[in-house]
């Protein structure tokens, strides 16, 4: 498998894609003039610069002679569980409150590691829930309710 400059080509593509998205959106805002720049002016200039840089990085990757190093393993399980934990927390904190939301997110993120079995993950989640209630609710007086409106009768 030839890996010559694969990292450069991929990162160049990412930069190019982001530049295109920002550039497209920016061109929809009033540009104004150099004297009185509108909201679209500077972002459009930046998007252009990012596109040029992205192309340059890609070009470097395509012309690179030597292999640049493997990309290495990707922790799919870790990514899925940690992102899942964050999304779960964001989606439920308003509804079910601090304690259940932290418990769920803590359980999910602990499971991101292969070394945590179900019992260990539960222990971590319970400990984190207690700690967060103590620190954020009692210690810092955070206004988020411990149990949210969805769970009250």
């Amino acid at each position: 498998m030839q890996h010559a400059g694969l990292k450069d080509i991929l990162s160049g593509l990412i930069f190019l894609g982001i530049a295109a998205a920002f550039g497209y959106a920016a061109s929809g805002y009033p540009l104004g003039t150099a004297l009185r720049m509108g909201p679209g002016y500077f972002p459009l200039v930046l998007a252009g610069a990012l596109a040029v840089l992205g192309l340059a990085i890609m070009a470097k990757g395509i012309t690179a002679a030597a292999a640049e190093g493997e990309i290495g393993p990707v922790p799919w399980r870790g990514i899925a569980f940690i992102i899942g934990a964050l999304v779960f927390f964001g989606a439920t904190i308003k509804g079910i409150g601090l304690a259940p939301s932290v418990f769920g997110a803590g359980l999910l993120s602990a499971l991101a590691s292969r070394q945590n079995g179900p019992v260990a993950a539960l222990t971590v989640a319970v400990a984190l829930t207690v700690l967060c209630i103590l620190v954020f609710h009692y210690g810092l007086g955070l206004s988020v309710p411990v149990v949210g409106p969805w769970l009250r009768f």
């Binding site: 964050l86 927390f89 997110a105 989640a125």
Partner: peptide, 8 residues
Amino acid sequence: PAIVIFAS
């Protein structure tokens, strides 16, 4: 997990 939770 503690880092993830405290950050959130």
